[in-house]
């Protein structure tokens, strides 16, 4: 319950920090940290326009997407404090329930019958498919390292003590940040600030959403950011006492947001054709980590 509440709080300012870092890096003053959440609040109170082409699927999809992310957050623990539920292999549930949300997002985009949204849907389907093995190999590796099988047990059993484990945690951090950037359709895979539909992925899928639905989708992105931030934080929290883990949680969330902002400021978006190669590299990095862990164990 605690982690759920903390992630929700973090989701309120996470994207704001990313935006603020980007504006500072480009020499602008930029909007306040809570501007994104104000925008969402405004959207939630607005009416909507639906395309005549769309069907029930389009109406249902944003709710399913949002609920899927809430359900995924429910299994994320805070160090040694469990999430709302915790059971063996809960990270499989985590990945698959997120995939369910994505499935609905994709078919909702196809429901509009627009050429742009079909394009976005196609890209989203491909890139998230490629990122899937990396996440599973990462979790398998952490499981092998700790000998446990659930998020809570893995994170509370994780000890960073040897030189090799510093390297492993660095790789794990990098992997999680990159998976986070891919899942949230940010740089270097996708550019949320682009104005050309042909270069968008996620943004182009939600062109026809408006009002409450759009608000849900945007806040889902914030939640997703904070959720991955929480996973990264968990790599470090371990068995800290309560006040320490809460402090570390927010510290690492802010650090992750700053890193995301810095990546977005100083990196260009990849060519669309190179994205799949880049995402596949993540799987091989995860394999590298696996080999490291096997070195430690033997």
């Amino acid at each position: 319950m605690l982690s759920f509440a903390l992630i929700f709080v973090a989701s309120l300012f996470f994207t704001g920090i990313v935006v603020r870092v980007k504006s500072l890096a480009s020499g602008r003053k930029g909007p306040g940290v809570f501007q994104p959440i104000r925008d969402i609040w405004r959207l939630l109170r607005k009416g909507a326009v639906y395309s005549r082409t769309t069907s029930l699927v389009f109406q249902l999809a944003p709710s399913v997407y949002f609920a899927s992310i809430l359900a995924a957050i429910a299994v994320v623990p805070l160090g040694s404090y469990a999430g709302i539920v915790s059971f063996s292999c809960d990270f499989v549930f985590f990945a698959y329930v997120l995939a369910l949300g994505k499935f609905f997002c994709i078919i909702a985009a196809l429901d509009t019958g627009s050429s742009f949204e079909g394009m976005g849907a196609s890209r989203e389907a491909l890139f998230s498919m490629l990122a899937e093995p990396a996440f599973f190999i990462l979790m398998g590796t952490l499981g092998l390292l700790t000998g446990r099988t659930s998020f809570l047990q893995i994170f509370s059993g994780l000890h960073i003590d040897s030189n090799l484990s510093y390297i492993l945690v660095t790789i794990a951090c990098f992997l999680l940040i990159m998976i986070c950037m891919i899942e949230n359709s940010r740089m270097p895979v996708d550019d949320p600030k682009t104005h050309l539909e042909l270069t968008m992925i996620h943004e182009v899928m939600i062109l026809d959403n408006s009002g409450f639905d759009l608000g849900l989708i945007l806040h889902a992105t914030n939640l997703k950011f904070a959720m991955y931030g929480a996973l990264i934080a968990n790599l470090f929290i371990g068995n800290m006492p309560l006040w320490g883990s809460v402090a570390a949680f927010f510290g690492i969330q802010i650090a992750t947001a700053v890193v995301a902002g810095v990546i977005e400021s100083f990196m260009a978006r990849f060519r669309m054709g190179h994205n799949s190669q880049f995402i596949l590299v993540l799987s091989s990095l995860a394999l590298l980590m696996l080999l490291g862990v096997m070195l430690i164990i033997n």
Binding site: Y50, A67, A71, T112
Partner: peptide, 27 residues
């Protein structure tokens, strides 16, 4: 999870009831 989806969808329908909803072409 099923209850959660129902809740979110219910909330959405509740909010949307008071708001103007229009139909248009796909953008």
């Amino acid at each position: 999870f099923v209850v959660l989806v129902a809740l979110v969808y219910g909330l959405r329908s509740l909010c949307a009831r008071r708001l103007p909803v229009a139909e248009g072409d796909t953008w």
